[in-house]
Design a protein around this nucleic acid. Sequence first.
DNA 1: GGTGTGTTGAAATTAATTATCAATATCTTA
DNA 2: TAAGATATTGATAATTAATTTCAACACACC
Lengths: 143, 143
Amino acid sequence: MKKEEAKRIFRQYIKKQGLRNTRQREEILDVFLSSGGHITVDELFDKVKKRDSSIGYATIHRNLNLLLEAGLAEEIKIGKEKTRYEQMHMREHHDHLICLECGRFIEVVDENIEKLQNRLAEEKEFTPVRHKLEIYGYCKKCR
Amino acid sequence: MKKEEAKRIFRQYIKKQGLRNTRQREEILDVFLSSGGHITVDELFDKVKKRDSSIGYATIHRNLNLLLEAGLAEEIKIGKEKTRYEQMHMREHHDHLICLECGRFIEVVDENIEKLQNRLAEEKEFTPVRHKLEIYGYCKKCR
DNA sequence: GGTGTGTTGAAATTAATTATCAATATCTTA
DNA sequence: TAAGATATTGATAATTAATTTCAACACACC
């Protein structure tokens, strides 16, 4: 299961940095990996609090930052909406079509675009690690 | 000159919304359009202040929001860095290669990628308006 | 030029994130 | 497995960024 792999990566990162694993850290990690696609800090806080009501807000932030550093999460911020955190390892990579009218996300992948991106990077003597593509416009319903 | 066109678009937008043009608004517009690629709120504030030292910070924010609404500016936020505002009309569209090590931006364009993006959107019955592509990795110097 | 109302600057407020600190928990080593 | 060094936690304070408030002002339409 992919979740276990993600957990292993996180625990490895923690250890490598000379940090320690804790009950709270594991709880947050598990909830994050069990959440859907894109979660806000508040949503994560609420979900974790249901399992462990003593957990603090600052701890959520601290550990989200670790997840970012470990490459397991990525911040996505769209317009004036709240920052969301997206899983990077659990889910397949995908790009976003974002409707300017209703705010709906459509997740897409196109192998050819991915290839061209890599080629483009290579031309500039750049080693690509990951990317983010957001196409803004109007969805089926709103156009 | 492109700058004049951008100004016209902004003035039109202002009028259409039933808003008014002001000395400060024009000043901010001009400084924004004269700035390089990506400017932070503070940088813009400092530059405007040199021309008109009485201008307030809130006015910068208010008018940046108008520039966003009018489609002349776009927010770009990378990692933990300060939000930057990019010109949308003055400059040709381009994507970004962003170095994870030194933070350098490389601006790129690839016609083929642009075309594939439009085709992808069309397949999903989505009408694309604009897009943002950021490729993260390591630049020539850092890889 | 007068007038209605949008805009401004300054300060207060809100929202989001980070820092502080004493108490506690973890991990290593002996 | 007990001890000790130190990272982590929760609560709160502090910081940062962006927005709101409000009285004075200024723009645009007449």
